[in-house]
Nucleic acid binder design. Sequence first.
DNA 1: GCATTAACCACAG
DNA 2: CTGTGGTTAATGC
Length: 226
Amino acid sequence: MQTVKCATCLLKSKPAQNLEDSELAILGQSCVETVFEKGETIFKQDALSSNIIYLQTGLVKLMIKGPQRMQIIKLKKAPCFLGLPTTIGDKINHYSAVALEQTTACFIDLSLFKSLLRMNSDFSCEIILELCKNELDQFNRCVKLVQNQVFGRLATNLLNMANEIYRANEFDLPLSRNEFADLVCSSRETVSRLLSELNQEGIIEIRGKHIRLIDLNKLEDISRNG
DNA sequence: GCATTAACCACAG
DNA sequence: CTGTGGTTAATGC
């Protein structure tokens, strides 16, 4: 096992910027870096987990199998922490994480992570901040999911991908139609139909997985009111 | 009633 | 894995 040089890692997380050199050294000693290919599971629902994961690069989907179907809770883009709620909140994972593209992840032992939290309060505050932002996002997403029609949910998620993940209006969808349906809580057929409808109306342009958002105003309108 | 929305099924590339 | 068409159930004028 090679020691990861957290101190010089350019992909250092915002919270970790608060850590002292000595603390980074501790982190480096027990941090294990792994590369996951597209489609590989980083951790699995119902499995025991005692690691906090830091995503250096890549994109991941978090999913939960519900009573009826699989649901995608959220897409997570590096750099970010993964599995804080599910690792700290319970022994068993409440959701799975699967790589959507090649992804580099660092595994940090939970007890070590906890001692860092106790040692450095600035670090802890940044972690709390991240958790709070996530919870707010999830609350908002929850309301939209329940109160908007599929069209609105679709538009919202397209805009999120463009704004939060790719920072561009043209990108390749990281999800199949089926997965997209799991994300917006709909069926694969409906997603398929609505995407081609948006295409026909010239609001987006889509060829297979490649998508270009054209009429952002209209999309935002659909996102709000759809 | 009638229209709309969206899920489910089936089937074809 | 996708796109379409038919059918059906729920909901809202």
